[in-house]
């Protein structure tokens, strides 16, 4: 198991606490972990998609004002996600002890650490989706889960799973973007509001205000 594969769930945990700007780092780490596991056409395509799925939300959200809803429960959600990670590690150890044979067969295909890393990333995302109330934070949770799903699907080496993971990723990106577009006020409206309240004319230096 590569060090980058361990980094993926940890970065997911950081993203749950710090917000959407950590998402591109998670995507890059995920792509790195995928490419380090082997280099074929499928892995390369999924790595590119993983980066796209994480960069696109950050670019998209920069065009809108930030959500007014403040998430008070960020650390409790992160703590819950961490607890689930520990539970998953313990459950894997239990499975190793109890059923050995089926898990060994699975591990031969996937690799236990990589497999666990993907599951942890997916579960961290789901905890964020359920725990947060703000729409942007929930979207972030779904994006993290998509990264976990992509990682798991490629590690399992099943084309159907990869196809479904890419489909879910696209749906989360486009439908989430559509719903946010209908709800969040755009950033240009904010600048327009400043223009009106400060009596700016066209051609005035707006950067002077942000100074």
């Amino acid at each position: 198991m590569s060090l980058v594969a361990i980094l993926v769930p940890l970065l997911a945990l950081v993203a749950v606490v710090r917000g959407v700007w950590v998402l591109p780092l998670l995507g890059i780490a995920n792509a790195g972990a995928l490419l380090l596991g082997g280099q074929d056409r499928l892995r390369e395509s999924v790595a590119v998609l993983a980066v796209c799925f994480t960069v696109a939300p950050v670019v998209f959200l920069s065009r809108y004002q930030s959500e007014t809803h403040y998430e008070r429960s960020r650390f409790s959600v992160a703590f819950l996600a961490l607890s689930f990670m520990i539970l998953l590690v313990l459950a894997r150890v239990q499975m190793d002890v109890q059923i050995g044979v089926p898990l060994a067969a699975q591990v031969r295909v996937i690799g236990a650490g990589v497999f666990l890393s993907g599951v942890c990333t997916l579960v961290i995302g789901l905890v964020a989706v359920v725990g947060y109330r703000g729409m942007v934070w929930q979207w972030l949770g779904l994006q993290i889960s998509v990264q976990g799903a992509l990682f798991l699907a490629v590690a399992a080496q099943k084309n159907v799973l990869v196809g479904v993971a890419v489909l879910v990723g696209s749906v989360v990106l486009f439908q989430g973007g559509l719903c946010l577009h209908r709800i969040l006020p755009s950033a240009s409206a904010l600048i327009g509001g400043y223009r009106e309240s400060y009596g700016w004319q066209n051609g005035d230096d707006e950067n002077a205000y942000y100074g």
Partner: peptide, 13 residues
């Protein structure tokens, strides 16, 4: 996502 995750886990556990 839960269904997806479970379909990558070992069958029948």
């Amino acid at each position: 996502f839960l269904v997806f995750c479970s379909l990558t886990l070992p069958k029948g556990t």
